[in-house]
Simulated scan of single mutants.
Amino acid sequence: MAKLDLADSGISSDDNKLTAAEKEEGWKLLFNGKNYKGWMCSNGKKIAAPIENGALVPYKSGGYLIVYDKEFSDFKFKCDVKMPEECNSGIFFRVGDLKDPVQSGFEAQVLSRKGTGMHDFGAIYDLVAPSENRASAPGEWTHVEITCQGPHISVAVNGKVVAKLNADEWTVPGKRLDGTGHKFKAAVKDFPRKGYIGFQDHGHKVWYKNVKLLEL
């Protein structure tokens, strides 16, 4: 078997491992970089997509999402994502119903287009636009961190918070704080505050590594 060229893959020997500091703080490694232990498709099927050079791949997985098999409520979550020239994916979190993830959870948008709209990289999808688009160039890794604590949600990209909301303030179904419409049938304040975390297959190749979570 040919030896994996870590330089070409963008994977280093330190990837998909907890640092000593992370272990001390109580972080959990959700993806081991070798197999899909602890992961499944949101429809309950076994994940069909192979691991690629130490990265998790939602594309052609067999389900709308690849999800970790445990629910979380308050947490800090982080991962690195690499996109090709054309990419549409997302990091779903607090998904309360795997049969309807779009309407029962939040999504941090992953998209290769440069922009700062409700559907661009770093947005809390269809709710809060990112203050800036900090995604790395195609083929380079972007670091994403999501924090959920009670009603407070934030998304940070490459070390800077770009989108946040207080769910308790979002009291009207289908309406943003400024009165414009969004796609969700429920008021954001009524979204589940515990649920699954997963990565979306939206028809494009995308890679995720260093998937870690700290329960708060």
Rank of each mutant, 00 (worst) to 15 (best):
K37S: 13
A2N: 13
K34N: 12
H204P: 01
V144N: 02
A7Q: 12
T142K: 04
K82T: 07
L214R: 12
V206H: 03
N133A: 08
K160R: 11
L111F: 15
A156V: 04
M83V: 14
W27Y: 09
E52P: 03
K189L: 08
V161M: 06
V102N: 11
V206C: 10
K37W: 14
I51Y: 02
N133E: 10
P84N: 15
N158R: 04
F184C: 03
N16M: 06
S73I: 07
Y196L: 06
A21W: 07
F77T: 02
N158W: 04
A20D: 13
T19A: 07
R113K: 14
P101K: 01
G10H: 07
V211Y: 01
F77E: 01
K17P: 10
G159W: 07
F92W: 04
I153P: 00
A187G: 11
L111T: 06
K78L: 08
H204D: 14
D74Y: 04
F191S: 00
P101T: 05
A137Q: 12
E25R: 12
F121I: 14
E86K: 13
K185T: 15
S89F: 06
K60V: 09
E85N: 13
S73K: 09
L4S: 09
D126N: 11
H119Q: 15
F93V: 04
P192H: 12
I11F: 02
E132R: 15
D8M: 15
A21I: 12
L56T: 00
H152V: 13
N53C: 10
V95H: 01
K70W: 08
G198C: 08
P101A: 00
G63Y: 00
K194L: 06
P130E: 00
T171C: 15
L6W: 13
D178C: 05
N16C: 08
A137T: 11
K23R: 15
E132L: 10
D74G: 05
L165R: 09
E169Y: 09
A7S: 10
K17V: 07
A108D: 05
G159I: 10
F92K: 10
D97R: 09
E169T: 12
N133G: 07
T171N: 14
D8T: 13
A55G: 02
W39I: 06
E25D: 10
L165M: 14
D178A: 01
C41E: 00
G203T: 09
S104Q: 05
A49N: 05
F72M: 03
Y196E: 09
N43K: 04
V188R: 02
R193V: 11
K175P: 01
E140W: 06
Y68W: 11
G179D: 05
L213F: 04
G195S: 07
G44K: 06
S112N: 08
N43D: 04
S112V: 12
K183Y: 09
V110K: 01
S89M: 07
N88W: 03
L6C: 09
V102H: 08
S104K: 05
P130L: 02
H204C: 12
K46N: 04
D15A: 04
L18K: 03
S73G: 10
G181I: 11
V144G: 01
E85H: 11
N53A: 15
G159T: 12
Y196M: 08
F93C: 00
M118G: 09
T142I: 10
C41S: 03
G117Y: 06
K160T: 11
N166D: 15
H202S: 08
V157R: 02
Y68H: 14
K34P: 05
I66L: 11
L165D: 03
I47H: 02
P151D: 07
G96P: 01
